[in-house]
Design a protein around this nucleic acid. Structure first.
Lengths: 135, 135
DNA sequence: TTATTTGTAATAATTTTTATTACAGTACAA
DNA sequence: TTGTACTGTAATAAAAATTATTACAAATAA
């Protein structure tokens, strides 16, 4: 399991708490304590999903693309969401086995269901509310 | 992300569909198409959680430890559940940063919440109902 | 007593994740 | 117009996690 969601959430939290001021990827990498290129990659992805804006050049950096009240944790999770919520084996189940032949379809159906519940839960909290919990 | 949950679910599905008959780890490995030692390890874990019983020796193998109607998908997930539902970065956020200092606690709180919702959802389906979907 | 099976350890191979280096492009400001 | 401080991204290396393989002791049925 990778750390993309916590990192994306950490980034978004920093940007929210900066209250409109720009932050550099180096600064954020320092807070997260992770390589700055990884932060820039994640930022790049967040920009693609229109949650973050950037400005190149001197005094450039990153800001939220819209107000924190309009960004839910579900939207943040969406940017890093894996194919399979509860994990994916890299095996190809035996198609000659009556169970093996069908299991992937049923797991996939289950995952759609789980994902819906998860997104609903994450949709309950917006970034502003999440950050309001910090002292 | 690893494939433990799908593998555990595949195992449980096979045992359920065997209707009380014993299955060997080799047979299950053939259906899942994964190494038999990995299957035995997962079975070992399922036994520890009292969902599966085993019998060593010739004609030995594995069976469900109780009726499939009394086993929920939540109980199966419980046996393989990772520390952090939505992933864990291996970094140690900067304690000198006001956000970094607190983020892990807030992520942890969020995860407890998410986990509760997830377990509730998975608790809705028992193994019998899951397997009933197979043709 | 032989064959088959679980249980587990040790190790190797593979894959995924993260870090590092490098550099082109942008923009500000002196 | 030149230097400086950024973003954006590619290429590669290092580290960590996952899965496969080999080996073998212990159990038990026939």
């Amino acid at each position: 399991m990778n750390g993309r969601f916590p990192i994306a959430l950490h980034i978004m939290t920093l940007l929210c708490s900066a209250e409109g001021g720009v932050l550099s990827s180096e600064y954020m990498a320092g807070s997260i304590n992770v390589n700055a290129v990884l932060v820039r990659k994640e930022l790049s992805n967040l920009i693609k999903h229109k949650l973050v804006s950037s400005q190149a050049g001197k005094n450039g950096g990153y800001t939220l693309a819209r107000s924190a009240a309009q960004i839910t944790l579900a939207q943040i999770y969406e940017t890093v969401k894996p194919e399979a919520v509860l994990g994916q084996a890299k095996n190809q189940p035996n198609p000659a086995c009556p169970i093996g032949k069908q299991i992937n379809q049923h797991i996939s159906d289950l995952y759609i269901d789980i994902d819906r519940a998860l997104m609903q839960k994450l949709g309950d909290t917006d970034l502003k509310a999440f950050v309001a919990k910090f002292d």
